[in-house]
Amino acid sequence: MDGDFLSLLPEHPLSRVLTSDSQALAGHQIEATTVLAFHYRQGVLMAGDHRATADNLIFSDRVDKILPLDSDSLMAIAGSPAVALEMARTLETSFEFYRRSQLQTMSLQAKTRALSQLLKENIPMVMQGIGTVVPIFAGVDYSLPKPAPTIHFYDPLGAQFETTSFASSGSGAGNVKSILAFQERWGSPAPHKMDLKQATTFALRLLTTAAQFDSATGGVDPRLNRYASVYSLRPGEVRQVTDEEQAQWWGKEKKA
């Protein structure tokens, strides 16, 4: 009764734990994408394109890579979707199980460690070269005097780092990080001073730029009504920025 959902799984034969056996047939591998997160004025904005590829093949332009885990945390996935989606599902269940059974929410530190632990358990898949996951996690830190969301990024082996302003992962991350660093230092407004509309439009621009230099990133194409997965995180609130909102704000930006 310690609220640890993962400890229940081995006792139940239907359950699947993240082991190399259960993921050995993961199939197509995706290590190419662009996901990003940065602080904006009211919280954290997390965005990702919808494209999934395997080598030179595009096999979907409808994948959601930003996943709400609970009302206080978001995860962006880059890497093998078979493993990454299962990690997200495991975390989502674990956080809710803990909250309901223990009658309190899991601390941010425990949440980030839970993801780190899953990544460590996945090392055999990483070593085989077919199950690498490099996620970004954003969660609300309620231990701060004024609770606020923080951004955390990981290496494939599970090491976890907290970032002060932004993070990006995937094959398009290099371009995105350069622009974010530039904008944060010299831009006006800096990302952390943007409102939600500005931040969303900025994220769409980043993905579009990443797609220009990285064929594995889908980017944004209003002509095809193709937008991105965009979520904002504030204390107690995960909000999806819908395609309609993105279309409206992107359109206004173009006219301006």
Partner: peptide, 8 residues
């Protein structure tokens, strides 16, 4: 029971 069923 509910979480195991929901997860599985």
């Amino acid at each position: 029971a509910a979480h195991l069923e929901g997860f599985n």
